[in-house]
Amino acid sequence: MKIQEVILKAMSGKLKWWEAAEIIAHSRKEIAIVELAANLEVPVGVIRVLAADLRDQGAITITEPPTETVSDSSDNDYAELLHKVLDGIRAL
């Protein structure tokens, strides 16, 4: 079952939230919050709140773009990341 379907079922009450959390925890899928919102046709803010709840229950992890934290900590780390991104785009 796709994460979208799980969340949709949880939102419509067909699944308890902890059940949804368990399913998501066992899935290894990764999806952007905004992508999930678009797929479900639910506002981004709603998904963000639900995702934060699931994270607090330990069901999922939320990954922030590393750019801000990395650029704060070390210019070298950030430059290395940018080199990789550049290389990645070039190789498309």
Binding site: A32, T61, I62, T63, E64, P66, T69, V70, L81, V85
Partner: peptide
């Protein structure tokens, strides 16, 4: 809130 590669898949998100 975590940063850096995700623990699950090791993918690093960046945006433009």
């Amino acid at each position: 809130m975590g940063s850096g590669p995700s623990e699950r898949t090791g993918l690093t998100p960046v945006k433009i």
